[in-house]
Every structure is written in structure tokens, then in C-alpha cells.
């Protein structure tokens, strides 16, 4: 019995506490490690999980196609979704508030001359009849108390729909930021894909 050690009560308590701490810490380290692994996985999953979001590419620039795009966008926003619209090529007309010629190259001036002045002056995709079609459709829409395209665009802005103009097509069409609506965003294909990858709905109009 020579290796018997006599401990006072306080020493015994201290020793037990120390042993318990060691054990608990060892166990906790395991738990913390697996918790971190789980948090990492959840983070990756939620990053890749679709949000309640709709994304539209607006490529066309006619009254009817733009009207369809804005109706869907406004509807989605009213159904609680986050909505992003990306305007490229002919679709840029929807964002045009103004047309300028100064400071542009000859090619850009020619494109500017041929493009509509803005959403109030767009042709229809069918039955345009040298500009008679849009007038006729505007008349029919007023008769039936349907919102005009400019009103739908204003409504989309009011509802906080994110509108992004494609810089690359602005370059091709010679469109400057000064000619487009205020309070819009600018971006490229990655901007669209970033939002589209998180969307439940994505459309090309």
C-alpha cells in the first residue's frame, strides 16, 4: 500500500474538476469540429439553393414583347418575389429616357437615329404597318383600360424591381448612361448568371 496517496478533500475536488474539464474539452472539440463542418455544408447548400427570385433577360424591344416582360416582372414582384430584369440589345429601348447625338461616332449616331426614342415610341412585333400598328394597339389598350408600357415600367421601378442594363450591348448600340433611366444598375453576363443561378424562374423575352 506504499503507492497510496492521501489527499485532502479540497485537493480531491480540484483533481476531479481537472479530470472532468479535460474529458469535457476533448468531447467538445469533436462536437465543435463537426458543428463547423455542418455549418460549412449548410452555407454551401443555401448558396446553391434557389431563392424566391425571378430573373428576366429582355432582349426584344417591341411594345408587345416588352409589355409581356413587364407584366410578368410586376406580377412576380406582387407575388412576393425578388425580380431582376437584364436589358440587352433591343431591350435597352425600355430604359431609354432620352436620345443624344453629340459626342458619338458616325456609326453610333446612325444607330441612335434608327432606334426608337423610348418605350413610348416602340413598334409592335407584328402588324406594325409602318407605325400604324402601335397607334392602333395603344388605342385598343386605352379602350380596355390596360396600363400603358411606360406606366408598367414606372410601376416596375416603384415595386423595387432590379433593372440592369447590359454594358456590352450599350457599347455596341452606342447608348450612354445619360440616355437611360436613373436608378438602374449596370452589369454584364456574370451579373445576370449570378442572379439567374439563384432564381426559380428565368425567362428570355
Amino acid at each position: 500500500m506504499s503507492d497510496n496517496i492521501t489527499l485532502s478533500q479540497s485537493e480531491l475536488i480540484a483533481l476531479v474538476n481537472q479530470l472532468v474539464d479535460q474529458k469535457v474539452n476533448a468531447r467538445l472539440a469533436d462536437v465543435e469540429a463537426s458543428l463547423q463542418a455542418i455549418q460549412g455544408t449548410v452555407g454551401t447548400l443555401s448558396e446553391n439553393c434557389p431563392e424566391d427570385r425571378a430573373t428576366l433577360v429582355v432582349f426584344s424591344g417591341e411594345m408587345d414583347t416588352l409589355f409581356a416582360a413587364f407584366t410578368i416582372a410586376v406580377g412576380a414582384a406582387s407575388m412576393g418575389m425578388e425580380v431582376s430584369m437584364f436589358f440587352t440589345f433591343w431591350g435597352l429601348t425600355a430604359l431609354r429616357k432620352d436620345k443624344t447625338f453629340s459626342g458619338k461616332t458616325v456609326g453610333e449616331k446612325m444607330v441612335a437615329m434608327m432606334l426608337p426614342n423610348g418605350p413610348h415610341a416602340v413598334p409592335t412585333s407584328r402588324m406594325n404597318m409602318a407605325g400604324m400598328g402601335p397607334l392602333f394597339f395603344k388605342y385598343l389598350m386605352t379602350q380596355r383600360n390596360i396600363e400603358s408600357l411606360p406606366n408598367m415600367i414606372a410601376l416596375a421601378q416603384e415595386l423595387g424591381i432590379k433593372m440592369v442594363a447590359c454594358e456590352m450591348s450599350m457599347g455596341v448600340m452606342g447608348v450612354t448612361r445619360a440616355e437611360l433611366l436613373d436608378d438602374i444598375d449596370y452589369g454584364g453576363v456574370a451579373t445576370y448568371l449570378g442572379d439567374a443561378a439563384k432564381s426559380k424562374i428565368t425567362l428570355f423575352v
Binding site: T71, G75, S78, I146, E147, L155, L159
Partner: peptide, 14 residues
């Protein structure tokens, strides 16, 4: 009354 798609749901949502 008299409003067309999508205006009723826009108004309801608001």
C-alpha cells in the same frame, strides 16, 4: 373593377 391583369394582384399585394 375595370382593372386588367396584372393590376388586381398588384393592388391586392399592396
Amino acid at each position: 373593377k375595370g382593372l386588367n391583369c396584372p393590376m388586381p394582384i398588384v393592388k391586392i399585394s399592396r
